[in-house]
């Protein structure tokens, strides 16, 4: 005896879950470089780097996690070398997580542009922790943030 799971048409499982983790590993590495640049006082380089990463997050957030450049790399070069995925997952949570990443990195970029240079490193460090947990521990930030935003009343309002 069981009830039907919530499965709207746009959240059908169609994504190899290892794709977003592969992308998160690259992103985490690049964010660490930004943190290092920011700490060593290379403010301009750090700001440019974070702006580039924000643009990549925007790509994932608006085009979908499955159409992100890293996802393309994964499909082209990595997935053919791996075993088939155990199960496919919906692209909605990683796409949402890309939006969260965009928000965090864009905050750093904006603060950096108005002269708050340390914010670049701090925002890069925050985004790094999320990307690292995603890549190494398979933590799904999008899933958790989505629920917390529902609880805060910012998403998923009761259907009128």
């Amino acid at each position: 005896m069981t009830s039907s799971p919530p499965s709207p048409a746009d959240t059908r499982p169609d994504l190899d879950p290892r794709g977003p983790r592969f992308g998160a590993a690259i992103t985490a590495g690049l964010l660490l470089v930004v943190v290092f640049l920011s700490l060593t006082g290379a403010s301009v380089a750090a700001l440019v780097g974070l702006a580039g990463l924000a643009a990549l997050f925007a790509w994932g957030a608006f085009a979908g996690a499955g159409r992100h450049p890293y996802s393309m790399l994964f499909k082209r070069f990595v997935r053919p070398r791996l075993n088939p995925p155990v199960a496919l997952e919906s692209a909605a949570p990683p796409t949402f997580a890309q939006g969260v990443g965009l928000l965090v990195t864009l905050t750093g970029v904006v603060l950096g542009l108005v002269g708050v240079a340390p914010a670049v490193g701090v925002c890069a460090a925050i985004a790094f922790v999320a990307a690292f947990l995603n890549a190494v521990f398979d933590y799904c930030l999008g899933c958790q943030m989505y629920l917390l935003l529902v609880r805060a009343g910012l998403l998923g309002r009761p259907v009128a």
Partner: peptide, 10 residues
């Protein structure tokens, strides 16, 4: 569950 949950279907 929610509709943004990677592990809920499994």
């Amino acid at each position: 569950s929610t509709d943004h949950c990677a592990r809920c279907p499994g």
